[in-house]
Design a protein around this nucleic acid. Structure first.
Length: 802
DNA sequence: GTGCCCTGCATG
DNA sequence: CATGCAGG
């Protein structure tokens, strides 16, 4: 509707890799630096230059060596190398850190790359308008702000204050919102700096393309507004290729065909003309963008849809031998495994597909190709899944990767110039079992559970009945009831709820709306399981009562495994809407704030006892769920920033956290929403440290194995072995009951933590995706076994010989 | 001989 | 599903 009056922001980190390096190594602060990428040839290729170095004439497209000549005191930190290729994980992590700060300001956040994100702040702006008089806005409230078309932002401010009376074309309503937007963006950027130490720039406009366009116009650490009435001024000199989507072949073609070179000239063509020269869609798009119109919504998207890695083998580096092919596939596969492991912890999801791509050189030409594979349940048993499957796919593919027939020296028929493995088609881990759980619930529970009789009463009565049950019988079957209730509430489609209420198990099974499922409790069965295993532990009930304590608790560690709410479901659900995305992204707490308590108790249990047995498959998830006596409040479904605020006729209150105007009746829910966000942030913090610890463990282990056996292949990464270093008889040790190994006493706590982390990770991966896991546990097992080591779990190489 | 790597989308 | 394009 009001697509043309949104306030859209692009946040772009200034020379991000450099900033990350500076933060990691404070000695670099203030010095000229450029981040270089491995290839030691001539000092490595520069991929980022900080502003000190830019002032001295250093640019990208230089090699480290040239930079050094131009600027002798330049520091050249290098992108770390792991397994023979660039490892950008620290930048990835840093980007996530920033995005998490941004996410506090609006759920309508779209991560566009490692260091860029779009925000739709239309709603926060609208909310601020209720409390902030535009005429009282002062430039102090937005330092480092520029308005395109004005010499200083003061002039723009003056225009807005005078309602633009002197300027016929001035769109006051719009300009006002951009101005407030700029105030908010100042706050956002300040928060980013405050919380991460990183500086960024921003573009503020009424759509993504313009925000992006204008973001880079003042850098670093600055923000630029593009008022509507200045678009034409900007376009009059703007090369067409500067506009996103026009920077490549398409833009070039447009210029050629129309014989134009800047954006302004594009306005000389009618929509019909443009459609006839290009196609209907592109024509319309061009016509609109020429007028500053871009209707593309900011999508709520935090997580990537695929995870992949690849490597070029240029020139002489091309792969010729089967052995090197295998080795590189192994490295790529290992990296994927590592990243998936973390992803599983953070997002509780599992990929269902992998793609291997490659290019080969065949008589002077590079032929590229790719093959995909959908994981099957048997893959569970398959060691080194990615690399082996990739090899299999490669060798099967028609393009003649085939091996030359000289077994002594297994050479490839054609040199491989490029290899890549990626995984995608993620499914939420709990998703799979949700329907089953509900089925189980009815199948097993309905007979003895008198509180829910699907065939009686109206829908409304049902829900009330369920809630009452929860209140009066907190100890019995709450989990199941609760799931059902959530299921019903999560449903945005009345007729679906209807059918669930009225009908039986089969019908639920037929209700295969992914959207429906996506809001359900992501962790239910996992936690239920653990709880069941420990249900006799008195800690639970005690911890449970501490709801209020939890609310003020600033640092209590919570379980690292909780899905961090970053929408695990941002995949291709056809029915998925932005609203779903948003709801999913806060789903974790929206569903059940008490979960945090449960999580905490689990964590305590895990650390304080070793009661947990090995059996992760006792599928008795429907036992008593721990539960507080209140029904957790739901965030109203229409709590979507884009929804127009109907402020005038109902009493509202301005939320101090987000400045949104909140109907008095919804204040409680709203503050719960913020609480949820806060809690989630804490969880994430914990996940981050957890991952860091795991990494250290891995690192240790890697070094260890390299020392020990340089001849063989790299050892498994997360292995217990890392805890076995230097055991000296003089040091007091204790036998770990889990692995039976001797562990130095002072390391014992750490050691238990290791098992805990591993167990959690295993649970997560195993629990809901019997089809496939890529977790450390499996790797560890197989790699630790010398028998299996040289085994080809998928298909013997020989089978590819003819 | 010297930009590499990663991700997402459109297309047939 | 495979491939190529685009963008950062």
């Amino acid at each position: 509707m009001d697509k043309d009056n949104r306030v859209v922001v692009l946040i772009d980190m200034d020379c991000f890799y450099c900033q990350v390096e500076e933060k990691l190594n404070p000695e670099l602060k203030g010095k000229p630096i450029a981040v270089v990428q491995y290839n030691p040839w001539q000092g490595g290729g520069i991929i980022a230059v900080n502003y000190v170095a830019r002032a001295r004439g250093v640019t990208r497209h230089m090699r480290g060596k040239e930079a050094k000549e131009k600027c002798p005191d330049i520091e050249l930190p290098s992108v770390p190398c792991q397994r023979g290729k660039a490892d950008i994980s620290k930048y990835r992590d840093a980007g996530k850190e920033v995005a998490r700060v941004l996410q506090k300001f609006t759920p309508l956040l779209e991560r566009a790359s490692i260091d860029e994100a779009y925000l739709d702040i239309t709603a926060p702006v609208e909310a601020r308008l209720n409390t902030l008089n535009v005429n009282s806005v002062h430039t102090d409230m937005m330092p480092n702000t520029f308005a395109l078309g004005y010499d200083s932002v003061d002039e723009f401010l003056a225009d807005v204050h005078t309602c633009g009376f002197e300027n016929i074309e001035f769109d006051y309503e719009h300009a006002k919102r951009l101005l407030i937007g700029a105030v908010i963006v100042s706050e956002i950027r300040a928060a980013v700096y405050e919380e991460t130490g990183y500086r960024c720039s921003a573009g503020i406009a009424h759509n993504k393309i313009l925000a992006k366009l204008v973001c880079g116009m003042n850098k670093p650490n600055k923000q630029t507004i593009l008022p509507k009435h200045c678009i034409n001024l900007l376009y009059s000199t703007l090369p067409l290729k500067k506009v996103k989507h026009l920077g490549g072949k398409f833009g070039y073609t447009v210029c050629e065909v129309l014989k134009i070179s800047n954006m302004g000239e594009l306005q000389n063509f009618t929509e019909k003309q443009l459609q006839s020269k290009f196609d209907e869609k592109n024509g319309t798009w061009l016509y609109n963008i020429a007028r500053g119109i871009d209707l593309e919504p900011v999508q709520a998207k935090f997580n990537p849809k695929s995870i992949g890695c690849c490597k070029n083998f240029k020139g002489k580096a091309a792969l010729l031998k089967l052995e090197s092919l295998q080795r590189w596939l192994k490295d790529l596969g290992d990296e994927i495994e590592d990243r998936l492991e973390q992803d599983a912890i953070e997002n509780n999801r599992t990929p269902k597909q992998m793609v291997v791509s490659y290019s080969v050189q065949i008589s002077d030409r590079d032929i590229s190709s790719s093959r995909s594979y959908n994981f099957t349940p048997e893959d569970e048993l398959c060691g080194e899944l990615f690399s082996n499957k990739a090899l299999e796919l490669l060798l099967e593919s028609s393009e003649g990767i085939k091996i030359k027939d000289c077994p002594s020296d297994m050479r490839l028929k054609a040199p491989i110039k490029f290899l890549g493995i990626s995984v995608g088609k993620f499914e939420d881990n709990t998703e799979v079992k949700k329907t089953k759980k509900i089925l189980d619930y009815f199948a097993a529970g309905a007979s003895k559970d008198v509180t829910v009789k699907p065939k009686e009463g109206t829908k409304q009565e049902k829900i009330n009945e369920t809630s009452d049950t929860i209140k009066s019988e907190p100890k019995t079957n709450i989990g199941k009831d609760y799931i059902m209730q959530k299921f019903l509430q999560a449903s945005q489609k009345p007729q679906v709820s209807e059918s669930i209420m009225k009908d039986n198990v089969e019908q639920i099974n037929q209700t295969t709306e992914p959207v429906l499922q996506s809001s359900l409790d992501k962790q239910e069965s996992f936690f239920a399981k653990i709880l069941n295993q420990n249900k006799y532990n008195p800690n639970i009930s005690r911890v449970q009562q501490d709801v209020d304590l939890q609310k003020i608790r600033p640092t209590t560690p919570v379980c690292d495994v909780v899905a961090c709410g970053e929408n695990s479901n941002d995949s291709n659900y056809s029915g998925s809407t932005i609203n779903d995305e948003i709801n999913n992204s806060v789903a974790l707490f929206e569903e059940d704030p008490t979960k945090v308590i449960r999580v905490k108790s689990i964590r305590e249990l895990l650390t304080s006892s070793r009661l947990i047995n090995e059996d992760p498959d006792s599928d008795t998830a429907s036992e008593p769920e721990q539960k507080s006596n209140e029904v957790p409040p739901m965030v109203p479904r229409n709590e979507v920033p884009k929804a127009p605020q109907n402020e005038s006729h109902s009493e509202t209150y301005q939320c101090p956290d987000c400045n949104k105007a909140i109907a008095i009746t919804e204040v409680a829910e709203h503050s719960d929403f913020h609480l949820a966000l806060k809690l989630r942030e804490e969880e994430r913090q914990h996940v981050r440290t957890e991952i860091k610890e795991r990494k250290e463990v891995k690192l240790k282990q890697n070094m260890e194995s390299k020392k020990q056996q340089q001849t063989t292949k790299p050892e498994p990464v997360s292995s217990i072995a890392s805890f076995l270093v230097k055991i000296d008889d003089n040091i007091p040790t204790e036998i770990c009951s889990t692995c039976g190994k001797k562990v130095p006493l002072d390391k014992f706590g750490e050691h238990l933590d290791f098992h805990e982390a591993q167990k959690l990770s295993r649970e997560l991966n195993k629990k809901t995706s019997p089809q496939f896991t890529g977790n450390s546990v499996k790797r560890k097992r197989k790699s630790n076994s010398p028998v299996k080591k040289n085994k080809m779990p998928c298909r013997p190489i020989d089978s590819f010989f003819r």
